[in-house]
């Protein structure tokens, strides 16, 4: 058996496979299908200061090899997360990370501060890249100065591993990655969804209530691999790769491009057991290629 263990800053992952926020609920939704403890980590859904209802239905549209969503960060809010959800999921023997979202620097800091108090949450993924909220969200992630500002403020109140999730909807993702590294991020994850749009020509209107939404699924993967490769060569902090991963070979592309870990998103909707299949596929690959340690192939491109 090859060693699949990797590290993101202070977090040791038993393997590089994590789940992408917003595609895996709180993990519990998948417990009937897989042994959650086989995953390297679970990143639970985006959590904001207050409970949010998200955008109006319809907020999903299937597109070729992918989908658009405009959920808009529907979640129970940080207080309910800490009091009701956390006690249920803290016992799962894997790394549980919380995706932290907000509309203002104060909100990001307040949520991060409250999550910092939870002993079984070793890190957060700071979501400065959601395309589906009117205020904040992607706004912070598209400008290097604003990205650095929110990260440095959150850094002051959050002591554990701070991963910053980046948007691909920028001219240079490398500039944003460097800015958040400078501001104190321990890691960056990329890519969040790509801003997209689809029109129902029969009804002559957009499919989504919000008109535009975030594109995910296999169609975004080549863009994501390219961005991970660019960022991994530009920063010193570990990179977490995601975007259209649906099998072990996809995951390997990201690892070879420089990601220390990966997240599986939309593929969970098609096959709720896909994450465990990817873990097994990585092990098979290492055996076939006589690789003793998965870290030996990380960043080889």
């Amino acid at each position: 058996m090859a060693k699949l263990e990797t590290k993101i800053h202070n977090i040791t992952l038993k393997n590089p496979v994590m789940t992408a926020s917003g595609t895996f609920g709180y993990g519990e939704e998948f417990a009937d299908f897989i042994d959650l403890t086989r995953l390297g980590g679970i990143i639970v859904k985006g959590t904001t200061g207050e409970r949010r209802q998200g955008n109006a239905y319809p907020r999903m549209a299937e597109t070729p090899s992918g989908m658009l969503n405009a959920v808009g960060l529907q979640n129970v809010g940080v207080e309910n997360f800490c009091k009701q959800v956390y006690p249920r999921i803290k016992v799962i023997d894997t790394n549980i990370l919380v995706n932290v979202s907000g509309s203002s620097i104060e909100e990001y800091c307040s949520v991060a501060e409250q999550i910092n108090e939870l002993p079984n949450i070793p890190g957060i993924e700071l979501n400065i890249s959601c395309p589906n909220v009117k205020k904040g969200g992607m706004g912070f992630g598209t400008n290097p100065e604003m990205a650095a500002q929110v990260v440095s403020e959150v850094r002051k109140v959050y002591g554990k591993t701070l991963i910053v999730k980046l948007t691909p909807n920028v001219t240079s993702i490398v500039d944003i990655a460097k800015a958040v590294e400078q501001a104190g991020a321990d890691s960056v994850s990329l890519i969040n969804t790509m801003l997209g749009m689809a029109i129902d020509v029969e009804r002559q209107r957009p499919y989504l209530s919000t008109i535009t939404g975030g594109l995910s699924g296999p169609c975004v993967k080549p863009v994501a691999v390219r961005m991970v490769w660019q960022v991994a060569h530009a920063v010193q902090i570990p990179v977490v790769g995601l975007g259209g991963i649906s099998c072990a070979n996809d995951a390997l592309e990201f690892l070879m491009a420089g990601a220390k870990a990966i997240e599986v998103g939309t593929a969970n909707f098609v096959d709720p057991t896909v994450t465990v299949k990817i873990v097994e596929g990585l092990q098979d690959y290492c055996q076939r290629h006589k690789i003793d340690d998965i870290n030996d192939i990380i960043g080889i491109i």
């Binding site: 609920g25 998200g54 319809p58 999903m60 989908m67 969503n69 909707f269 709720p272």
Partner: peptide, 14 residues
């Protein structure tokens, strides 16, 4: 409603 995951994870079908 139109759905993606069917198991309450994606929150698309609200």
């Amino acid at each position: 409603n139109m759905m993606a995951c069917g198991i309450g994870a994606c929150l698309c079908c609200v």
